[in-house]
Design a protein around this nucleic acid. Structure first.
Lengths: 341, 341
DNA sequence: TTGAAAGCGCTAACAT
DNA sequence: ATGTTAGCGCTTTCAA
């Protein structure tokens, strides 16, 4: 029923090898034959079966992406960056979410391999032993975004979380704040969650105003931000500034402050991290640490495709495996303000 | 280098047909042989090549999804709904964005077909002639989400946009508002954009208070909402309520009002559409029309998989092709309020 | 129950 | 420059 290269060959009165040649421009073909073949292809609307092609060539032009949660804008913007670059370079994307479950992740890495993906982009916050093994066996290019990875041959695209948090905290210190709380990520988030906390702590320790009682744990959700803020406000010594490990919690804290008739930023400065869209939109708008989500995706896929294509040439340079640290920057908006010392 | 069914057969001392049989439980195999084969598979970590399998079986367990924009939360939540169901049913997803460009869309529909997807989910706002042809030729199950489609055999999953907009407007009318503006979608959005406007208009016309000067066009972005609101505020007779065709514009309008020291909802009621996350989070929180994004995705993929699998059985029932209208509901929050008549 | 062999649709080495 | 043919790795008739 579906038309194949054989019928094209027959109708054009040539061998299928010739058809294949004109299809791929892989070898010179006599102009009149080429015309005839092209003609038949046109007429029949023939399109080569990519599966068969892939099987024969060991190339599918498909790339796999594994991500914890597709509905989280932070991730979907990275995906969007990956996707547009991928599309521009004539690859296709297979995408799966893991719901933060490592066994799901492993299962789908294998599934993708079976399906012939030529490379893999991974967004994970935790690389454990078992995962390491699977990745080690993978035999095709892999890039990670965000979390570190100690495996050779797996470059990571990231930002300098610690430095960024340090700068954000330093900014609050420069605004004369002495009691600066942090709603940090969960302790189990050993990567960015921890680095952002360490940056915060470093700045405060350097200024001699670190107070561990002002550090609270939140699970990155709006509700956690809101609730943690409630606790903070119920305490005896209310902070004058709060640094949150992500914008979503920052907005939770912000709304909580507003609901409690606290004036932000007059009475309380709030600083987020990520610079998601809502930061710009909120009233008051939220100061934050901008990180380039789309660019993260783009750099990752660009690097991956480079690895894939130079692997064929064997021209791969050493620097292709190096980690890349993308630039962050502080975005100052309405939610933070200098106070009198 | 990669291990194949042949090596398994050799190592287990059987034919590859037998290996295939134990792999798929397709035919009875002597228990001792099965054990031996399983053993070898285990030892070698063998996993069958899905490409080869797909070529032979004409089945890939891959589904294609085409969507205008991956970074838009409205879409990514639908995708998330699709993905989790897909994953639970052991299919994989190939996803591509179109940037609202129909030729890109067509190109990737064909690409997906070449790559052997077994079904297609389409999110489009516009089905033109050319697209219709391509879809008609597709020969595999297709589902559309959102926009209508006049093609037989292509079920649509949607909400009743007109009714929803009607109810939202009616709600504002019941709050005693007489001057109710609308920031509608672009005129080029012939589907939901238009239906939402029609619902709004119908309610106002029925109450005899429709005024076309109060209808403004916006392109669904925060900036458009903000800017349009600026114009509205500059006008001579400022409306007391505004219905926006989506939440993003509503928040734009809301922030503009706030920036101009207008009290929402005391002086101005604002109602959005979609009930995206920000609606709940904003201060004041935004009244809106809730629509079930994740459920849209799930219903679509559930239906699609049903079509795919019953197509094999030829057991497909008529109702499998029927459109489905999902429930919306009004969510009343802080941004709308009754006024004195 | 098992194995041999044909076939899925394409590419590429080898011959001509 | 073109055709013949042997794979790519798997499933599935068909015979035994």
């Amino acid at each position: 029923m579906k038309i194949t290269i054989n019928e094209i060959a027959k109708k054009a009165g040539v061998s299928k090898a010739t058809v294949s040649r004109v299809l791929n421009n892989s070898k010179p073909v006599n102009e009149s034959l080429r015309k005839r073949v092209l003609q038949v292809i046109e007429e029949t609307n023939f399109r080569p079966n990519a599966l068969a092609r892939g099987l024969s060539l060991q190339k599918t032009r498909v790339i796999g992406v594994i991500i914890p949660d597709l509905s989280n804008p932070v991730f979907s913007r990275i995906i969007a960056g990956i996707e547009s670059y991928t599309r521009a370079h004539d690859y296709s994307l297979m995408i799966t979410a893991t719901d933060y479950d490592i066994s799901t992740e492993i299962k789908h890495i294998n599934l993708f391999r079976d399906k012939g993906v030529e490379g893999l982009i991974l967004l994970t916050d935790d690389v454990n032993q078992k995962l390491s093994e699977v990745l080690g066996d993978f035999s095709k290019p892999i890039i990670m975004i965000g979390s570190d990875c100690d495996l050779e041959k797996i470059p990571v695209i990231k930002i300098d979380n610690m430095k960024a948090a340090y700068e954000a905290t330093q900014y609050l210190i420069n605004l004369n704040h002495k009691r600066i709380a942090m709603i940090r990520g969960p302790l189990t988030d050993r990567f960015s969650g921890n680095l952002r906390f360490e940056g915060y702590k470093k700045a405060l320790v350097e200024s001699g105003i670190y107070d561990e009682n002002l550090v609270k744990e939140g699970k990155y959700s709006f509700e956690h931000g809101y609730q943690t803020m409630t606790h903070l406000l119920a305490g005896s010594k209310i902070p004058t500034a709060i640094f949150c490990a992500n914008d979503v919690m920052a907005v939770g804290a912000l709304k909580c402050a507003l609901d409690n008739d606290l004036n932000v930023p007059e009475e309380l400065s709030i600083m987020g991290f990520d610079d998601i869209e809502i930061a710009k939109i909120y009233t008051p708008s939220l100061s934050s640490v901008h990180q380039p989500f789309e660019a993260k995706g783009e750099r990752a896929i660009a690097k991956l495709i480079h690895m894939i294509e130079s692997e064929a040439d064997e021209t791969i340079s050493e620097c292709a495996f190096e980690d890349e640290v993308l630039e962050h920057r502080l975005i100052i908006r309405q939610s933070t303000k200098r106070i009198k010392s």
